[in-house]
Design a protein around this nucleic acid. Structure first.
Lengths: 245, 245
DNA sequence: ACCTGAACACCGTTCAAGT
DNA sequence: ACCTGAACACCGTTCAAGT
């Protein structure tokens, strides 16, 4: 299914050709396009080939339609990206209100990380873009509900939400591309790092590098460590606020 | 100095014209370009007009040079963006090793936020891009040094660094564009939000919106709240590790 | 209502040619 | 060593024209 090689042809394929999109039975009259089909195609294109390859023209090619036609279903490329983010965020597991808020928030964060692993382009697209899509809004409302029900004031709940998601998105964007894998390569890497230290420069960075060469960096553990830190802090704040009241 | 209006001319300005770049005395023979001058011009272009207007062609226009010439000084647009990030990060205040680590980290975070306020494009560019520029590496080394000296193990220091910066960058990217300002507009906004709630939907979001309509959201306070949470957590971890040893 | 063709005003990058 | 002209292979978006 992964068809990301830069197109070998610039011209449109012959209309008869089932070669390019083999999974599509071209006999049945193609059902008409709509916003959802466009968004879903964009998401899988981004998943497979990276966000940079999500161009109007490439997306049109995938949907067997000219780029200009897409504007019947989306307002602009920005609108497209916004819709894609909305779709991705909607995959984050729904917090269930019955569970203890801390556990709910932890599960939500881990679920979000799984979503961001599946859609590696998504975290980079969440920013000034308003989170006003209906799915997103419902999601935000549910998260706030869990926190308010747990005893946070509306403002404190919003604050907690913001702090948690800042960490979540920020961690995701720093997701390191660790490439060194087997033991030999690791110690070899450490040796090189030491050799490259120019006469006592970057000593601290070198110590960390050596440490990681021996005990590889556990990204998931690092994430959950920070998550726990924040959740514990929020819990303490909640306790302080409720005794004061 | 702000000259961001989309260029009114496509053709190059007349060579004699001091009209377009009035601050530049065009009589003296322009000093030759170099990497630093290109990067600095790109940074101020991004500051003034946004990152999207940093194109090779526009940058060339600013430097009174054809776009192709830029490739004598930078390898590619990606190289350019990397260099810009490096330059911005180098503006973050240097942590001084003499001070208590927690205060140092707090000041660093606040300084970083000031830098990101000045260069609003910067936070969005820090991601998979390696932080391997010489300035960045020296900076990383210094931060790690403060933490290690405070008693964190190399791995714990790296973890603390990662957690802090995840929060920092993540918060920055969510920086809300609060547009409502005066009191009347705020209560008006709250009224509208309530009116828009479709028969009991999004109740929690509505409560938060109303709360903010009365007591406007203090972004700086929210940031420092989360920052304090994380720093306190790290301090507790440091204490636990050192008593255990 | 939806799609196409063709155009417009852009991009990043390469490269032979100039100085 | 640095810059230019010209080209290549792209972009997003608009719009009259088709069905």
């Amino acid at each position: 299914m992964l068809v990301c090689q830069e197109s070998l042809f610039t011209e449109a394929p012959p209309a008869t050709g089932g070669i390019i999109v083999p999974s599509k039975n071209s006999k049945e009259p193609r059902e008409t396009l709509n916003r959802e089909r466009v968004l879903r195609a964009a998401v899988s294109l981004a998943d497979e080939c990276g966000i940079d390859s999500v161009t109007m023209r490439e997306l049109g090619r995938r949907l067997e339609v000219k780029a200009a036609s897409l504007y019947n279903h989306i307002a602009s490329r920005d609108d497209l990206l916004g819709g894609m983010v909305d779709l991705a965020l909607s995959e984050i597991a729904v917090p269930t209100e019955g569970v203890f808020w801390k556990e709910t928030m932890r599960r939500r964060a881990i679920s979000a990380r799984e979503v961001f692993a599946r859609h590696r382009w998504a975290a980079g697209l969440i920013d000034s873009r308003d989170r006003t899509g209906p799915d997103s809004l419902a999601y935000v409302d549910r998260v706030l509900g869990v926190l308010i029900q747990a005893g946070f004031s509306p403002a404190a709940a919003a604050n907690a939400f913001l702090v948690l998601d800042s960490y979540l998105y920020g961690f995701e964007r720093q997701r390191p591309d660790v490439s060194i894998e087997d033991g030999f390569e690791r110690s070899e890497a450490a040796r090189k790092i030491l050799a490259a230290i120019p006469h006592g420069g970057y000593q601290n960075a070198a110590r960390v590098a050596m440490e990681y060469a021996e005990h590889p960096f556990d990204q998931e553990a690092a994430f959950e460590f920070g998550l726990g830190l924040i959740l514990d802090g929020l819990e303490r704040q909640l306790g302080a606020d409720s005794t004061r009241r």
